[in-house]
């Protein structure tokens, strides 16, 4: 099944939303589902901040998304939300991209399910 994901909450270490979304996506992929796209909206754009440096014994949220992107999952950062928060294209991790809300609309049209995680 094609599943789309929207995340509304970052600053990624503030809220559990990003963790739940990641674990959900991991489980969905393990079951053979297709992730139609992960749309990072609002403060969730900070999920993919290239220069984030969490303590070594903590999970690295941006790296986790980048690795998922490398596996072919389309990870889309909302352009308007990114601009508001100073997240320029050179400041996001590899295998993710900045695009508009139109991408979320397309995810909603193409996916059979869309799950939202947020505050």
């Amino acid at each position: 099944m094609k599943i789309g994901v929207m995340i509304q909450e970052g600053p990624s270490y503030n809220h559990e939303a990003s963790d739940t979304a990641y674990k959900f996506i991991e489980a969905a992929m393990a079951k053979g589902h297709t992730i139609q796209g992960v749309f990072l909206y609002d403060d969730a754009v900070t999920n993919v901040a290239r220069h984030m440096e969490p303590p070594q014994d903590d999970r690295h949220i941006a790296r986790r998304w980048s690795e998922l992107g490398a596996k072919g999952v389309d990870i889309v950062v909302c352009v308007a939300a990114a601009k508001r928060r100073g997240m320029k294209p050179e400041l996001i991790v590899d295998n993710t991209r900045i695009s508009g809300l139109g991408q979320l609309s397309e995810i909603c049209t193409e996916a059979e399910r869309v799950v939202t995680f947020g505050d």
Binding site: M1, I3, Q8, K23, F24, E26, A27, A28, A30, K31, H33, R113, V114, V115, T116, F117, G118, D119
Partner: peptide, 19 residues
Amino acid sequence: IDYADFVDLVEQHKPMTWL
């Protein structure tokens, strides 16, 4: 339930999150 069961529930039902 675990995350895999969560995925199954989403497969069976359209989801709505009460944020």
